[in-house]
Write a protein that binds this DNA or RNA. Structure first.
Lengths: 228, 228
DNA sequence: GACTTGTACATTGCCGACAATCGACGAGGG
DNA sequence: CCCTCGTCGATTGTCGGCAATGTACAAGTC
């Protein structure tokens, strides 16, 4: 009776369901940037009450996808050339810092989750010039697991809140021009397993490259469609 | 009509008021750790409805002061020997990282807010062996401004989220045994103004020292009152 | 005509009510 | 006596309603 091997059923409150639904819709662009999120309308569309929508929006504000002003409502943030550097800058601080802390310890590094994410990334990568949703998910998972390794709930939480914005930005991430997208992550994993003290630097460089590529792509897109 | 010099009136929603009230109560220990936060009771006590209390509790969960389980309610987290290292570890990563980023740039560093906070700290410091509430506030302000300098909304937000837990821990911070509490901050500020590349290291050491002192104090307290 | 003032509608902030869920207690069966 | 199951009170999750606020537009004034 102990080895039934039952997985505990995942119970998601209405709020959480609304949250993921809204988040996906925003990241996918189904809800355009700058759009106002009206609680009553969303509640009708989602078949829930306003409270659930309200709480979900609150969380989206935390994640930086939505702006909120008292009595004035919630607007989907316009993430553009303005602040993609900050998302990646903050990630750089957190990820590099987490790995630095990790390397300071003597405990062995359990890289299994990283390997899995990397495998998923390899599998999901179709080279049509952009990243598939699966590849984006795998990329984010990789970096999340990276931070999780240092076993700091607070750093993990801080990093997780950046995930939504990262998803949004990765949709504008071109496949690496010359070098290899997967290979970059492989080198990261390899350095980590060798406990290379330069690993934090590698992560920083990796993120800076991504940021540059996204920036260039965003600039290109906004040039094509001037004020889309 | 432009020089009336009117300050815009601060409008705080009920939720925000409830939030600060609850947060203060928890940090001050008026609501003991491990206590269940019952929405209806709190609403009655505060003279508001349950919704406001609910939203406030959600925020407190974000700040790590409260644990929440679906259908099971919210408990004030027992912050003890378990995880004070993580609060300081996470702060170390964020603060040192922020300053590192700051130093990489060429822009001048506006240390005025830091000076102010430092001045407030000097003023508030009564050496009765513990920190006054004003001193705690000034200390936190100092470190918040430190992070704010690098102009990263996301790092600032991540750091601010840790403020409540920091407040909680600083109440167990003894005055430095030999060296000077204010002096340590002065050295930090000085190094920053000289753009000393060692500043991040200094911050790390400063935080590690604080963490150690708090840890020792917590150990002492729990020894005195074994299972208080 | 430009500016201010008044008004109406849309939307949020807040509230209490109802149903679902939880934990504890006690009844019943082995 | 121990274990299981049903029941009950307490608490949360969710909902729609009401008042307060914001915004757009029309009317009025200089």
């Amino acid at each position: 009776m102990d080895s039934w091997r039952l997985r505990s059923v995942e119970r998601a409150s209405t709020t959480e369901q609304v949250l993921t639904e809204l988040r996906d819709a925003i990241v996918d662009g189904r809800i355009p940037q700058g759009e106002q999120l009206r609680e009553a309308h969303l509640a009708r569309q989602l078949g829930t009450g306003r409270s659930a929508v309200r709480e979900a929006i609150r969380q989206l504000v935390q994640e930086g996808l939505v702006d909120h002003e008292l009595h004035r409502g919630a607007l989907v943030r316009v993430i553009a050339l303005d602040d993609y550097p900050d998302v990646y800058g903050a990630r750089e601080v957190i990820e590099a810092g987490a790995v630095r802390r990790l390397l300071e310890r003597d405990e062995p590094i359990k890289t299994a989750p990283l390997r899995e994410a990397l495998q998923a990334l390899r599998k999901a990568l179709a080279s049509d010039g952009h990243l598939t949703d699966e590849a984006i998910a795998a990329d984010i998972k990789f970096h999340q697991e990276l931070v999780r390794l240092c076993d700091s709930p607070r750093l993990t939480r801080a990093h997780d809140t950046l995930a939504a914005e990262t998803r949004l930005l990765l949709r504008h991430h071109p496949i690496y021009p010359a070098t290899d997208y997967v290979g970059d992550h492989e080198r990261l994993l390899d350095a980590l397993e060798r406990r290379d003290p330069e690993t934090p630097e590698l992560i920083a460089q990796h993120l800076q490259l991504s940021a540059r590529l996204i920036g260039a792509e965003l600039a290109r897109e906004t040039e094509e469609r001037p004020v889309a």
